[in-house]
């Protein structure tokens, strides 16, 4: 029974998610929140490949996200190139950047890796700000508004098609994560997480494993950047290369949900995005700063209750219920 339980649960979840928007206003608020939640679930899952499986805590993933968003948008503006092709080019550039960054960082661990990647993300932001002739600089960049609907150009009159693009992307990324997690690469990465030296002793090419994981993660993150650009239509360097808005947030979603688990980023995004919205709509106007304050406090509280996140917390609750039933 368990063999079919999780796959069938996944099928049910995907079916529900595909039918859900049909009941909603296609230009509405709820659908936008769902889109953002799926975007961040996908980003959290991408982060999870390096951050979760190999415990390489990256705080610079915004670099890849921004590369994706800027590459497709710049090419679209200059040559009317389809964002699909621009997105693929963005993925290539992100992979190149990941390889470049791996040269100085691949041997770093823990806090040192986190700080180095933080610096890399910030460096990209400074470049995007200063290189105004290409990026438009701090003023930001707009995707030209087309009143015609076109899948090839990723321009739609409602948010509904964007919703399905996000959903498909999320499903694919979850499959990629699951494939890596259960495959040979996943075992290697977990070996690195447990004890890198021991992993090397037993013959794991740790360098190669980390490199593959980080390039896959970078490519996925970059493509999500393109999807974001075609959904939001306007962005600036501070938004797509932001530490708090992207880098920390995608890590946060994976960590809060449960780091290194398939369900973690999904739970994390399903919790954080609506919570932010709730805080913004109920406290945002009345007292300045209250919503962000509440956000910070909730984060601290969850980590204090269980440092391993929501998945562990749910497991804990489940165990308590079952063990009660079992022992009596």
């Amino acid at each position: 029974m368990t063999r079919f339980f999780y796959p069938s649960l996944a099928v049910v979840a995907v079916t529900v998610m595909s039918l859900l928007p049909l009941t909603l206003d296609p230009q509405g608020y709820e659908i936008r929140i769902l889109c953002i939640a799926m975007l961040f679930a996908a980003l959290g899952q991408a982060w999870n490949i390096v951050g979760g499986l190999a415990n390489q805590i990256s705080l610079g993933h915004a670099a890849y996200f921004g590369i994706g968003a800027y590459t497709s948008t710049i090419l679209l503006r200059l040559f009317s190139l389809s964002p699909w092709l621009g997105g693929i080019l963005g993925m290539v550039l992100a992979v190149l950047f990941a390889l470049l960054l791996s040269v100085p960082t691949v041997r770093l661990k823990g806090h040192y890796f986190a700080l180095a990647t933080l610096g890399a993300g910030e460096a990209m932001r400074v470049i995007a700000n200063s290189w105004a002739s290409v990026t438009g600089g701090p003023v930001g960049i707009s995707v030209p508004y087309s009143r015609e609907s076109s899948l090839w150009m990723m321009q739609f009159p409602t948010v509904l098609p964007n919703y399905y693009l996000f959903l498909i992307a999320l499903v694919i990324i979850c499959l990629v994560f699951w494939k890596i997690q259960t495959g040979a690469l996943g075992f290697r990465l977990r070996a690195i997480k447990e004890n890198e030296q021991a992993a090397e002793v037993i013959g794991v090419d740790t360098y190669r494993a980390k490199l593959i994981a980080s390039t896959v993660s970078a490519a996925i993150t970059a493509f999500m950047g393109t999807l974001y650009a075609q959904f939001q239509f306007f962005f600036d360097p501070d938004t797509v290369f932001g530490v708090a808005t992207i880098s920390v947030k995608m890590a946060l979603i994976a960590i809060l949900g449960g780091v290194g688990t398939l369900l973690g980023p999904l739970l994390g995004a399903a919790f954080i995005i609506p919570m932010e919205e709730f805080a913004n709509s109920y406290f945002g106007a009345s007292v300045a700063g209250l919503s962000q304050f509440a956000y910070g406090v909730i984060l601290v509280v969850i980590i204090l209750i269980n440092p391993r996140g929501l998945v562990a917390l749910i497991g804990q609750i489940k165990n308590r219920i079952f063990s009660k039933g079992g022992s009596q």
Binding site: D25, Q27, G28, Y29, E30, R32, I33, I36, G140, Q232, F234, F235, D236, T239, G242, T245, E276, E277, N280, S281, G284, A285, A288, S291, Q292
Partner: peptide, 23 residues
């Protein structure tokens, strides 16, 4: 007046606008 915090994040600002129009 329906007042909301735009924060300093354009993504959030757009979401707020969407909320105001829908709700």
């Amino acid at each position: 007046l329906v007042i909301a915090d735009a924060t300093s994040n354009p993504t959030q600002a757009a979401t707020v606008a969407q909320r105001m129009m829908s709700q």
